[in-house]
Simulated assay, not measured.
Amino acid sequence: LGQTTREQPTIIWLSSQAGAEDIYLPITVNPITGLATIGEFTTTAPANGSADETMFSSDIGTSFMIRLPFVRYNPIGIDIGSKSIKMVQFTKNYDAIQEAAIVDLPPELSPESDFEGYLHGLGQTLQRSRVGRHFRGNDAIVCVHQRDLFLHNIRVGKSDPKALSNIVHQEAADRIPYSMLDAEIRFIESEDIRQGDQLLREVIIMACFRPRLEALLETIEKSGFRPASVDVEPMAVLRSFTSQYRREADEEDRVLYVHVGYTNTVVIIAQGNQILFVKYIDV
Rank of each mutant, 00 (worst) to 15 (best):
R147T: 08
N153I: 00
E214I: 00
I66R: 08
E116Q: 08
V260K: 15
L35S: 10
I27G: 11
R130E: 00
G49L: 05
I76A: 12
A100Q: 13
G224Q: 08
S84M: 06
R226I: 02
G39L: 07
P46N: 08
A140G: 10
Y257S: 04
M87I: 00
I66Q: 12
S165N: 09
N30A: 10
I176Q: 06
A163I: 02
F90V: 03
G157A: 09
A101Q: 09
T37I: 10
L200M: 12
F241N: 08
L122V: 02
R67M: 07
R210N: 13
I281K: 15
E248S: 15
L151Q: 12
L199I: 04
V88M: 13
N264T: 01
V283I: 14
F56G: 08
S63L: 03
K162Y: 02
Y245R: 11
Y118V: 02
I281F: 14
S15W: 03
Y118T: 04
H152L: 04
G137I: 03
N93E: 07
Y262C: 02
R130G: 03
I188N: 11
A183F: 05
L149D: 09
I220M: 06
N166S: 11
A173R: 04
A228G: 11
T62H: 10
Q127D: 00
C143Q: 10
A47V: 12
S63W: 01
Q17V: 01
P46L: 07
L217T: 00
N264Y: 05
R239Q: 11
T5R: 15
L149W: 02
T125F: 04
A18P: 05
I193T: 13
E214T: 00
Y118K: 06
P234I: 03
L256S: 09
G81V: 02
Q17S: 10
V168H: 04
I60P: 09
A36W: 00
S84N: 10
F225D: 07
I275G: 09
A270I: 03
V131P: 01
A51E: 09
